[in-house]
Design a binder for these strands. Structure first.
Length: 985
RNA sequence: GCCCCGGUAGCCCAAUUGGCAGAGGCAACCGACUCAAAAUCGGUCCAGUGAGGGUUCGAGUCCCUCCCGGGGCACCA
């Protein structure tokens, strides 16, 4: 998409009449690149061979070498097209893939398109076109831009998530999850307990009486309780256990988007990640996925995969496992003032059960059921500061609950730290100290975490201390450090130490360490039956339905009783219907009372469907929700293995070959994709969801590996400078002149420079198309790879691209005459000096490439190339390995030179050069002689010089003698052959 | 506030286990080529590693404190 502007700006050398005919110009580069791209496609050069099935290697060959599965994060084709930042990761994986292929691996690398979801739909709505049209056009454009880059993908393995035969399997997986429940006690084949099982097995066990019926009391021995239920009641029991289930609970509702969202899609300040709209908590009936059942495995299995620590930490934090105990407090019910509390209990979760003696009050969240009934009068001892000025607990609690409900997440967030709350009138009994403690409600306790209630220990918790201070509540310290707390210490002590002040009628924790006390109190609670060790998670179940048009429809129908039924496999896929209007029903962004309305509901003919599900034709209503776009990206890596497969989600033999545990030398025990490259922004969204689905599929026997992505690599971003004029308006960055020293000007006027993203509105976009035209794809690839380490973000600088172009031009000139186009290489053997430089380069490049450091690999290639440039004639023996080593990074020019050097076949599978150790040892080594750490002399010595000889030679060196200045020698440190350090007395 | 990553030449970046601060590129400057310029080729210049302290014969590298930049989390009991 080269704009006329961009074309004019392309000032880099175009062919001019006096230029040598065969110079490596952008025009020649373009000709070479297009030719080789066609050739690769024609020959199927990058077809990866499957061990079974229709997908063979080039020429119908089977697999050879180790399988190596390399992947980019699923691209989402936007209407804006690509800028030069986007291909960075694609080039990096391509370079690695080409390198591994030359190292003999069977490389699988392909690219599909993630194409359902909000952005595509927003773009379609804005431009007034059907999302399918805009999405397909965007994919076509992106394909074109990427093809021009010369990526070594297997073109047979591409697809888009909107393809009907892809949707079919996405829906199929949904139905597998719908047809499963989590048996937390079931042993897993690979070790550990807890796995998904089929719903039929649950029904069988309930009918046989092997387990109690959830939600129904009574002894189910022999299936008595189960048998007593009606068919409808049985279905309700089972439906509530499914891994994909519908329930009514507080969810994130974004009126401005017209849909509900998953927790992961809401930012910390309560707005939608997409569009930045306010998000409200509404109680709505929605589809969810029971990802919480997998919380432990999702945390524990991180140990078995090679991911950046940062991402692992983000996942751990998001899952938020914390170990502690649940404790039940009796609410003191007396006829006089608290009939409501009689017999009630409040269960709390705490990570610090050892501080139970310090619990001087309790706090329940405003949504807590205990507050449905509160005493009608304030009990004795109620302080005026607790009541909020209300005459009765009933009024006070009602007012506070109302206030809390009206607060948006944003407001709650803004108030964090400032403690508000009110006494509920309830009193509870501290089970260890026997003291009566007041129960407060406050919005710093969240209904969604733990039990929605806490025991407040102001002596050991900062938040509780802040609340205690605001409401004049007593503080007891139960832990003190070595030497005790200072006399005047107030507030919370959260450090380590010994337990103190924790002796009650039949228990004492005094003198124990905190960990010891945790164990002791937990055991005591369990013995007394008033609590037990417990683990809670921050992770919530995954809200899976969206009220938008552009997504996979749920393969579910609802019967007349409003219970969900799976659509049979043979009726998949359920394609998106045409609706009169696909635009979402959106509302004013702050319209709290609005309700989601699914666009699919607008086609009554589609919603009403008559099916024969085994009991004769009946009328059903289709589910009108669509799936979030994460659905498609949860399993696409499996589809690459064979997108033509209509029989399986994935052929088990292929899954084992490409993804199984230890399928090659670097694959770990968890298996998975060998290299997965993408930005860090999906750390807890896509990567968590995909791991969850994979584990369900593992439990159900569809895959053998326990993790989808064995190695993850986060690439940095290409950033750019943007410039603003004196009004703060962005000016076209390409037309700004100047530098760091002189300052920056636009049309003669000074402008301010800022550093950040590349974007249309910032007027600093540079596109790959501009690069192809001005330099060619190879130069662009070399430049992107040479800018710096892959995991670092760095600024784009168009004027620096010429350095990469010069490298390729010199390489070209080392093989081909610019005047005649003839081969200029010499067939004579290379001199020893050249061979040393060559083999040094081979050894270094191999090491750098193996460790994904293309920037330093390129530096070594340039060094070798520059050496060859200095020779009268370049020996074939030296330049052929250079061409091969350049191939992963600049494949087109390498292929062209390889062909001109007389080779008939593509170099894509030529062995990557191997260094001859004989040329790696140097004839002489420069030895540095230091006196007291300062360099005083240099010696040329043999690499295998003996330590004693070296010491002597160093001490005899005139400069050393001078530096010693007559002082005696205390020590001599010899690190033969490179260093001698003399320490004077 | 807590956690993670980074700070080396005018700029982007290199630097095995602690061992000569410089591999490569950009820019600048000089020269060659040219009538001239661009392109090209050859060459030159430039920092003591964010600051301070410590360990060591020796610190960009290890330890401590602080500063700056980027990212993540943030009432999660």
């Amino acid at each position: 998409m080269t704009t006329p502007d961009a074309a004019e700006r392309s000032t880099t050398a175009q062919s001019t009449s006096d230029e040598p005919r065969f110079r490596y110009t952008p025009a020649l580069a373009q000709e070479i690149e297009l030719r080789w791209q066609d050739r690769w496609e024609e020959l199927g050069t990058f077809h990866a061979a499957n061990p079974t099935g229709p997908l063979t290697g080039p020429g119908g060959e089977g697999p050879s070498g180790d399988p190596f599965f390399i992947m980019d994060m699923f691209p989402y084709p936007s209407g804006a097209g690509l800028h030069v930042g986007h291909p960075l990761g694609y080039i990096a994986t391509d370079v690695t893939g080409r390198f591994r292929r030359m190292c003999g691996d069977n490389v699988l690398h392909a690219l599909g398109y993630d194409s359902f979801g909000l952005p595509a739909e927003q773009y379609a709505v804005q431009t007034g076109q059907h999302p399918r049209d805009t999405t397909e056009a965007n994919i076509a454009n992106m394909r074109r831009q990427l093809r021009r880059l010369g990526l070594a993908h297997d073109p047979r393995r591409t697809f888009a998530t909107i393809d009907s035969d892809y949707v079919r399997w996405t829906q199929w997986i949904f139905l597998q999850i719908f047809d499963s429940w989590y048996d937390a006690e079931a042993p897993r084949p690979g070790g550990g307990t807890g796995r998904a099982r089929r719903i039929a097995e649950l029904e069988a066990e309930l009918a046989a009486g092997n387990r109690p019926v959830p939600g129904h009391d009574g002894d189910n021995t022999g299936g008595a309780v189960w048998a007593a239920l009606s068919r409808e009641e049985q279905r309700d029991v089972v439906d509530a256990q499914r891994l994909a289930y519908v329930d009514s609970s507080p969810v994130n509702w974004a009126p401005g988007l017209g849909t509900v969202l998953a927790n992961e899609e809401v930012t910390a300040d309560g707005r939608s990640e997409r569009g930045n709209f306010p998000v409200f908590q509404r109680n709505l009936r929605q589809w969810k996925m029971r990802i919480t059942a997998y919380a432990d495995r999702l945390t524990d299995d991180l140990e078995h995969i090679d991911w950046p620590e940062k991402v692992k930490a983000m996942q751990r934090n998001w899952i938020g496992r914390s170990a502690g105990a649940k404790v039940r407090f009796d609410v003191v019910g007396t006829a006089e003032y608290d009939p409501a509390g009689a017999g009630a209990q409040v269960e709390v979760f705490t990570t610090r059960p050892d501080t139970l003696f310090g619990a001087t009050f309790m706090v329940v969240s405003p949504e807590h059921p205990l507050l449905d009934e509160v005493p009608s009068a304030w009990p004795d001892g109620t302080r005026s500061s607790w009541t909020g000025g209300y005459a009765t607990p009933v009024e006070a609690v009602a007012a506070y609950r109302r206030e809390a409900a009206g607060k948006t997440a944003v407001e709650r967030q803004a108030d964090a730290g400032k403690k508000t709350g009110v006494f509920t009138g309830h009193l509870a009994l501290n089970p260890v100290s026997g003291l009566q403690i007041p129960v407060f409600t406050a919005d710093y306790v969240l209904m969604g975490y733990g039990t929605g209630a806490i025991m407040a220990v102001p002596g050991g918790d900062e938040r509780d201390a802040a609340f205690a201070e605001a409401y004049d509540l007593p503080v007891i310290h139960t832990v003190e450090p070595e030497g005790g707390l200072p006399e005047d210490f107030t507030g919370a002590y959260t450090g380590d130490g010994k337990v103190t002040g924790s002796t009650g009628p039949d228990l004492s924790l005094d003198g124990l360490t905190v960990p010891e006390a945790k164990v002791a109190i937990t055991r005591w609670l369990e013995e007394k039956g008033i609590g037990e060790g417990a683990t809670t998670y921050r992770l919530r179940d995954w809200l899976f339905s969206r009220q938008r048009y552009w997504g996979e429809p749920f393969p579910i129908v609802w019967d007349s009783e409003d219970r969900p039924i799976a659509i049979p496999d043979e009726l998949l896929p359920v394609d998106l219907p045409d609706v009169p209007d696909y635009a979402p029903r959106t509302f004013a962004p702050d319209d709290v009372t609005s309700e989601p309305e699914a666009p699919l509901g607008r086609n009554e003919d589609w919603v009403k469907v008559t099916l024969d599900l085994g009991d004769g034709p009946r009328e059903y209503r289709r589910d009108t929700n669509t799936m979030p776009n994460w659905a498609g990206s949860c399993w696409y890596y499996l589809r690459y293995l064979d997108p033509t497969d209509t029989e399986h989600l994935v052929d088990p033999a292929l899954e084992k070959y490409w993804l199984g545990a230890r399928h090659n030398a670097t694959s770990g025990p968890a298996g998975g994709v060998d290299l997965y490259v993408g930005g860090v922004e999906h750390a807890v969204l896509h990567l968590l969801y995909a791991r969850f689905w994979h584990k369900v599929l593992y439990d159900l026997g569809a895959v053998s590996s326990i993790e989808p992505f064995g190695k993850l690599f986060n690439q940095g971003y290409i950033q750019a400078y943007a410039f603003t004029d004196e009004r703060g308006q962005y000016v076209p960055a390409a037309e700004v002149e100047g530098d760091e020293l002189t300052g920056w000007t636009f049309q003669g006027k000074p402008v301010e420079r800022e550093y950040g993203k590349m974007g249309k509105s910032l007027k600093n976009v540079v596109t790959p198309d501009e690069m192809y035209e001005s330099y060619g794809a190879d130069t662009f690839r070399v430049y992107e790879m040479s800018m710096g380490p892959l995991d670092l973000s760095r600024p784009w600088e168009t004027r620096a691209v010429v350095g990469s172009q010069r490298f390729l031009q010199r390489l070209w000139r080392n093989v081909v005459s610019e005047e005649t186009g003839e081969l200029t290489v010499s067939e004579d053997p290379a001199e020893t000096g050249t061979l040393r430089v060559l083999h040094r380069a081979i050894a270094d490049v191999r090491a750098e490439m193996s460790n994904m450091r293309p920037n330093t690999a390129i530096a070594k290639l340039i060094t070798l190339n520059n050496h060859l440039t200095g020779l009268d004639r370049v020996p074939r023996e030296a330049v052929e390995p250079l061409v091969l080593m350049t191939a992963p990074i600049a494949p087109h020019i390498a292929e062209e030179l390889w062909a001109r050097l007389g080779h008939e076949h593509s170099l894509a599978r030529e062995p990557f050069p191997v260094a001859d150790p004989a040329y790696l040892v140097q004839e002489t080594v420069t030895c540095v002689v230091q006196v007291q750490g300062k360099v005083r002399a240099r010696l040329e010595v043999a690499p295998d010089i003996a330590e004693d000889d070296l010491r002597e030679a160093a001490l005899a060196e005139p400069n050393v003698v001078k530096a010693m200045d007559g002082r005696g020698v205390r020590t001599v440190i010899v690190r033969a052959p490179k260093l001698v350090n003399i320490v004077p007395a």
